[in-house]
Amino acid sequence: MSKNVPEVTRRRSATGLLALAALLGVGAALVYAAQATLSSYVVTLLALMFLNIALAVSLTVTNGFAGLFSLGHPAFMTIGGYIAAVLTYPPARKDFMLPDLPAVLLTNQIPLLPALLAGGIIAAILAFLVGLPVLRLKGHYLAVATLGLIVIVQGLATNWSGLTRGGSGLNGIPRLTDIWWCFGFAALAIYVALRLKFSSLGRAMMATRENAMAAELSGVSTYRVRMLAFVIGAFFAAVAGGLMVHLITVVTPKTYSVVLAFNLIAMVVIGGSGSVFGAVLAAIALTGISEAARPLEESLNLYGLSQVIVALALILVLFFRPNGIMGGAEPRLLRRLF
């Protein structure tokens, strides 16, 4: 591997960096072209697709690399969304929308980026606290705990009216996100996930998923590695939630629910658990399918059709390709770059 000869490694990573920059440039050019030619509705759709990519990729770190079964993404997105919304809300509107806010929050307004980070960090801390007892247990307790977390966060968002305006949610959130934010964030998520995957820490995550006992005997603290995977996923989910809230300009306690957790897990499984590239493909496909199904739902009065299609796609993939489209691997080209 790359460790043997440092000189070659350096040269390879230099060309790798160049290729990555080129890839990013192509992506940016496409985004620019899309923004110039397509309707604002389609551009918003593409922005949502980028956020879905970031969400699926971050869930790949938690559920794919480390083999945890977390349903927690909607909870972390809700937290990130509300925090980012409240922090960026103009004080003039806060006066009548959220009059019961603590004074500090009522009079101050901060830019989007620190607001996103604040949401991400608080979600990461919450994930840490949930993981503290749960990740010590063997088996799928995390699924149950994170399912509970969704309910708890929804309950908090509904009843902590002073901070969240209760069940009616927050609307008229400033539209601070555009397709560039979403593109950049998706690129960041992909980059972080791939760097992680081909690092010794990422390998330790996958080793823990494969055989926890052997990982321990190789000197891996499986508890610590799982915790990291869970916290990283939560951070990215919360930031994505913050971005999404500022794209759609509305957030309610029910915006991000278990259905979303199901859709994201479908993306990870269809893509091939542990494959970043697969998760990206599946996120693009499922976002496209559910948007395409929307006019059908309306004209045929078949609401919920897109859910049926997603579930059907999941069943078919599990039947014909149990390991998902990519089976946990990455295309050879990507492997060479990282």
Partner: peptide, 9 residues
Amino acid sequence: QIFHSLSVE
């Protein structure tokens, strides 16, 4: 107890 889906390397 090897890691089945990881490569030999």
